[in-house]
Computed example of a mutant assay.
Amino acid sequence: MADNEAGPDGSPDSAPTGTPNIHMVNARTLRGLAHPLRLRLLNNLREFGPATASGLADRLGESSGATSYHLRQLATYGFVEDDPERGKGRERWWKAVHLGTAFDSTADFLHDPDPEIRGAMGVVLHEVATVHTQELNTWLGTMHDWPEEWLRSYDLSDFKVRLTPELSLEMAEAIHDLVDSYRDRVPEGTEGSAVVRTHLHVFPRPTE
């Protein structure tokens, strides 16, 4: 599961091959992520770049005390750090350490029966799903503000295909590789370009 690469956050079961600077979550850092506001803060820093606690508070509709506290918690777990190139006086700027976050489906802690670990996973995964829904709804609500070329090029699809667990993983990895093949093909600032978000959800459904 990878979230918010080059922009959470936080999603198939392993980081795409060759993608740089992706944090592979472990049992310790999972606990550091398991708070909705921390995930929102991390996503914003990854997508929009360095910011102060007060700037993030204004953007997210939170108090600066709350954003400051949770930024320090994210720093404790290695997700964010000070940006020494910014800030004046006592103003503290934060930046994301990684481009994205991924879960390795082979990691032992993901299958741990401990309710605390399962609860933390639930918080992270449901927040990722919430962000995906918000992003999609924002696009649908603003799509007619975009040039006609973008209206012809977006996609909103779902598919149903019978697979084994092994083939499901193979398909997810193939989709990751396909998305990866488009990285860095368009330089930043290219006229008419935009950051494109692609959500991948792969899960089984009951047959009856």
Rank of each mutant, 00 (worst) to 15 (best):
M1N: 11
A6S: 11
G7D: 10
D13S: 10
D13H: 12
P16I: 01
P16Q: 10
T19H: 09
T19A: 15
P20N: 08
V25R: 01
V25E: 03
A27H: 08
T29F: 00
L37W: 01
L37S: 14
L39P: 05
G49Q: 07
P50A: 06
P50K: 05
T52R: 12
E62D: 13
G65M: 04
A66T: 07
H70I: 00
L71W: 00
L74K: 04
A75T: 04
Y77A: 08
F79E: 00
F79S: 00
D82R: 12
D83T: 03
E85A: 12
W93L: 02
K95Q: 15
A96I: 01
A96Q: 07
V97H: 08
S105T: 04
D108H: 09
H111G: 10
D112L: 02
D112N: 15
E116I: 03
G119A: 08
G119D: 11
M121H: 10
T130G: 14
E135K: 11
N137S: 09
H144P: 04
D145A: 10
E148N: 09
E149S: 14
R152P: 01
S153Q: 13
K160N: 08
K160Q: 12
V161Q: 14
T164Q: 10
T164V: 02
P165Q: 09
P165A: 06
L167T: 13
S168T: 10
I175S: 11
D177Q: 14
D180T: 10
S181P: 02
D184N: 15
E188Q: 11
E188M: 03
G189F: 00
S193E: 12
L200Q: 14
F203Y: 15
F203S: 07
R205A: 06
T207A: 14
